[in-house]
Design a protein around this nucleic acid. Structure first.
Lengths: 335, 335
DNA sequence: GGTTAGCACTTGGGCATGTTGAGTGCTAAG
DNA sequence: CTTAGCACTCAACATGCCCAAGTGCTAACC
């Protein structure tokens, strides 16, 4: 049998199945797609495809459905990203308007993406590895409590309440503030651990304890600002798309709630510079997502955007949406 | 028939149904609860209860299940909050430890509450109506972009990037900062709209435009800091508790994702000062929650904590958990 | 009057059985 | 390599049956 036709059959099966949610049989195939051959021929091809583990039959006399491996081949070799519709393009464009606030933009992005794809959309906060310290603020909340604020030039703000252990004077705090500020303004957040100790060392001895505590706070802030957070939207789509198909939604919700899981998932996916990356079904490192696929890509300088949905999803369209959104995001945030 | 026994029967029905998830019949009732009467008598009582709309039969020859109204009566007149187990008490206590960071505490609270109740837990950020301005910071991000940071004495930090429209000098910004700071430090956030205009008016004419823009930003921040946000956890519990009971999970997820909906829901619930408030099934103002109940209460100075779950839930235990968590939360945050 | 036993009646769920139709695999011919 | 034809399989659906659980009612009982 011809190799190209085999792929064509796989493509047809995937497309039909994604569309109808039902196992697709040889006869229906030849009717819907004008392949120039008869159903018997298709049957033979399908037998081969099944042999190769690309499709499977739920039971003896049912149609075939694609396996994870089948989707994989479909995504890698067959599907070409569909162009977006004008309306979709317009929706994305309208993202460009409005305030430049990072939180705002990400929130709208993730909403848009979930509506565009009808899946759960996920976006990782921009990594601030290269972010520079813009400002430091210490605020006395209570005699022993100091609010430490760290502002990066990216506009991201980190805050943390720390317990000084002993009473803190406001003047001392102001003094330390200008010391710290003078020494670390303009420094990369990532370099703080190396810089901070010397700042502490240069402080007057009587303030060194406090300085040490504050330095710890700052460092923790730079850590958590790099420990990326995740924003998501569209979890209700999970319920919708599985209304008559029991993808067990519980484990997926669990995974989504564990930011750590999602972060690992996204960063494990590598960053194919040419386009979006897809992780299908059991390819996912997390068991709860065995029936789910993740479509993601990088934006800006290293963070990820993507969606999560059932393995049975419209990959070409979804991939196009993710890619387009990521591009616009990069543009807006000046990645 | 005796009024007390009627209530007793309702209580028994609710408890059994919550436990077994199955309609409960007269015979099973007399066996499980040692009411001193026969099943025939119970049948008579049940007929009355049904007449009053407190219970209903899914079909002619099935047991009865409580209606929303039945749950309502159960909650209002019958159930007494169960004491928490030692383990639960311990879990809540351990909340007391750890950093005093508001975000941290709320996050752990909401996780704990969702685990305690096996429901979706929701917590509203503390209302900062009475919060005072602690600090103001303007940071120049780009020639025309200013990051406005507003820090309240509660430790909550608001930030916002604003577009100045025209190039901004750093010196001017610093000047304005000290002006603003001097005028509004210690002011209630809620009073900012009244105070800010006079600050702007007192600025040198050439800076007035910028001052106006900054004032707008600050006011927006105080608004959004009062426009309460919501934190939640345990959405996966929705899927779990309905594994064999089709509460349509989709609309509920939608509601949860719309912070506005949840905020209205919580604030509409009023604040019974004696304890927790319960909103059952169709009592909820939002249609998607017609099969769900919300158990919530206030903490600190006016914000709400609570859970959301299927109407068929263990109200006494849940109410106890919510109440206990709210109390500890009040204590920690010094409400 | 409230309570109870007894009984006829309803009905969903389980089960065994039959039927249908979509779909496959194989074989033999083109 | 393709195709027509055919026997075979099996989920899904339907039908009929029975059973158990549960109800409502009536008449007797305390």
């Amino acid at each position: 049998m011809s190799e190209p036709r085999k792929l064509e059959v796989l493509r047809a099966i995937v497309e039909d199945y994604v569309h109808s949610r039902e196992p697709v049989g040889s006869k229906a195939l030849v009717e819907r797609h004008h392949l120039g051959v008869s159903s018997a021929t298709i049957r033979n091809d399908m037998a081969v495809l099944e042999e190769e583990g690309l499709i499977a039959a739920p039971h003896t006399s049912a149609g075939r459905i694609p396996t994870d491996k089948g989707y994989r081949l479909f995504v890698d070799r067959i599907s070409q990203v569909k162009p977006l519709s004008a309306a979709e393009r317009r929706a994305i464009h309208s993202l460009l308007e409005g305030p430049d606030d990072v939180d705002d933009i990400l929130e709208r992005t993730v909403r848009l993406l979930s509506q565009l794809t009808n899946q759960v959309a996920v976006v990782q906060y921009p990594q601030s590895n290269r972010a520079l310290v813009r400002h430091v603020e210490f605020v006395l909340l209570a005699p022993k409590q100091v609010l430490v604020v760290l502002i990066a030039d990216t506009g991201s703000v980190g805050q943390k309440v720390i317990d000084a252990g002993t009473d803190v004077g406001n003047e001392a705090l102001m003094l330390l503030r200008s010391r710290f500020l003078g020494s670390i303004a303009g420094t990369q957040l990532a370099l703080l651990p190396q810089v901070l100790p010397s700042v502490v060392a240069l402080c007057p001895p009587e303030l060194r304890g406090l300085a040490q505590t504050l330095a710890h706070g700052l460092q923790a802030l730079s850590d958590t600002s790099r420990e990326e957070r995740i924003l998501m939207a569209g979890t209700a789509n999970l319920a919708r798309s599985n209304v008559d198909f029991p993808l067990s939604i519980g484990p997926v919700l669990e995974a989504l709630e564990e930011q750590v899981v999602m972060l690992r998932l996204l960063s494990d996916m590598g960053d194919d510079p040419r386009g979006v990356t897809v992780s299908i079904g059991r390819e996912n490192p997390y068991d709860g997502l065995a029936e789910a696929s993740v479509v993601a890509t990088g934006y800006g300088s290293g963070a990820k955007v993507g969606i999560l949905g059932p393995t049975r999803m419209d990959y070409p369209t979804t991939m196009a949406a993710v890619r387009a959104v990521a591009r616009y995001l990069s543009r807006i945030l000046g990645g």
